[in-house]
């Protein structure tokens, strides 16, 4: 089955909408709570990334019997050096975003920690696509 969400950049109050919905669905499917937790954490981080950095984004989620595939595509500045962005503590978040308690440079590393497969593609100045796969 599929779930789709759209995210507006800059609207921090909306971050967490997709992860909350996905959590409810996975609970109804009887997925292991620890597995749900990882997915929800990764998805929430990804949502925050779009809100904090991009103009807008789309989330497409496909749930199969043994896995969940999440694709987050945004229109935004892109990531010039993905390897650098994957390092803990590295952040390009603005002062304003940091003041709101985000942008500690833990986003992408935290996503990596909580997903089985992670693929990030980015075109600088245009878009970033994050694909995450979690097996139940």
């Amino acid at each position: 089955m599929e779930l789709n969400f759209s995210i507006e950049g800059g609207d921090f109050t909306q971050a967490g909408q997709a992860s909350s919905r996905v959590k409810k669905v996975l609970k109804q499917l009887g997925v292991d709570p620890k597995c749900i937790k990882s997915i929800v954490i990764a998805l929430y981080e990804a949502e925050v990334n779009v809100v904090a950095h991009a103009h807008r984004g789309q989330i497409r989620i496909q749930i199969e019997k043994d896995k969940i595939i999440t694709i987050i595509e945004d229109e935004g500045p892109g990531i010039p050096d993905i390897a650098l962005a994957m390092q803990e503590g590295f952040s390009t978040a603005s002062k304003k975003v940091r003041e709101m308690g985000f942008g500690a440079g833990m986003g992408l590393p935290n996503i990596k920690k909580n997903t089985n497969e992670l693929q990030i593609d980015s075109v600088v100045g245009e878009s970033t696509t994050v694909k995450m796969v979690n097996y139940f």
Binding site: Q28, E64, K65
Partner: peptide
């Protein structure tokens, strides 16, 4: 799980 997915859809 498969039946649950069916029901969900």
């Amino acid at each position: 799980r498969e039946k649950a997915l069916e029901k969900m859809s």
